[in-house]
Every structure is written in C-alpha cells, then in structure tokens.
C-alpha cells in the first residue's frame, strides 16, 4: 500500500528547467526561429506552448508564432465517451502554418491517439513543411506508431497509474505527478 495516491515526479522548478532545455532543442532542431510555429493541444498543451514561447523569446529575443489546437472533433472515441459539450476553439497564428515547421506541444504522450487527431486536424488547416512533436512527459503504452521528438522527461509507470501534468491555468500549480487510478485530478 502506497502512503499517498499522488506522487510528485517534477515540481515547479524541475518543469521550468525541462522547458528551458526543450525550448533550446526546438530552436536547435529548426536552426533558429524562422518559420517556426508552436501549436499547443488544448487543454494544458496550449499552456505549455505558451511557456515554451516565453523561454524562446528570452533566448532569441522574439517569440515564435503560437497557436492552439482543439482536437475534440477529431477524436476517435465519440461512441465510447460520448460528446463533450464544451468544445474549445482552434486558434492559428496569423500567418497560418503553410510551409512552417510546426511543433505540436502536448502534456503527456501515452497512446498516441491525441497526436494522431492533432496531425489530422493540422492537415485540414494547411500544409506544414515539417511537424515535430514535443511533450513534457512521455510514458509507454503507445497504440499508434508515434514518437516524440523533444521530451521533457521519460516516466516509467509500474502499474495502472496515470501521469498527470499540472499547469497553473487549470490546476493552480506547475508540476508532474504520478497518480493512483481512481484519484481524480
């Protein structure tokens, strides 16, 4: 029996250190920030994308265009989970994504289905030159052949625990927790 159903993996400082490194990797991979676009997946991925944008601005002097993807209507599990009455809006940067290097930002990479949906939606919006996947936490359990290009931290999940990323806008703090199933966020 574990003492607590919720075990912290990364605190605020650890997440910020990881984001700073990830921001450097993004710029390195793109060879600068020209043609770079960050697209965060709602919800939490968009918050992380904003934090990455701020890091890049600190380092490079100007921010890359940043948008948000709502993949609700691209999910493949409507019949299982039912409709979500609250659908967020997808926001593209003013210049769009055509010909850009688009970095999809999400909190946790698990089955890969969310990323599949995000890729499909992205293709409906335009034709990026290249797409990179950037996640704060990566765990095993992939159901699709999808892998992250830039990873904040790899997490080994022993049982049926969940990896949860917490962001200030949604959860009042920044961090990554390992959560016992049944424990609500």
């Amino acid at each position: 029996m574990r003492a607590s159903p919720r075990m912290p993996l990364m605190d605020d400082a650890a997440v910020r250190r990881a984001l700073a490194r990830m921001a450097r990797e993004i710029v390195e991979r793109n060879g600068g920030i020209d043609g770079l676009v960050l697209m965060g997946i709602r919800r939490r991925g968009d918050v992380l994308a904003a934090l990455l944008r701020d890091e890049i601005q600190r380092a490079e002097g100007r921010p890359p265009p940043t948008g948000a993807l709502d993949i609700t209507l691209y999910r493949d599990d409507l019949a299982e989970v039912g409709p979500r009455p609250v659908i967020g809006e997808t926001q593209l940067p003013p210049d769009g994504i055509d010909g850009h290097t688009v970095v999809i930002v999400d909190d946790v990479l698990y089955t890969g289905r969310t990323v599949r949906a995000a890729l499909n939606e992205l293709m409906d919006w335009g034709r990026p030159a290249r797409v990179l996947l950037c996640v704060l936490a990566e765990r095993d359990g992939r159901e699709l052949p999808i892998q992250a290009d830039i990873v904040g931290r790899r997490v080994d999940v022993p049982g049926d625990e969940r990896v949860e990323v917490l962001v200030p806008a949604e959860d009042d703090r920044l961090g990554v927790d390992l959560v016992d199933p049944g424990e609500a966020r």
Binding site: T72, L73, Y74, L78, E89, E121, D124, W125
Partner: peptide
C-alpha cells in the same frame, strides 16, 4: 467557426 475554415469539415461523425 468551422464554417469559416478553408476545409469546412471535421471528422467527428
């Protein structure tokens, strides 16, 4: 908003 998009279509149904 979907009706304003270039691709006025989402795959939900």
């Amino acid at each position: 908003e979907i009706s304003q998009r270039r691709v006025k279509k989402v795959p939900v149904l």
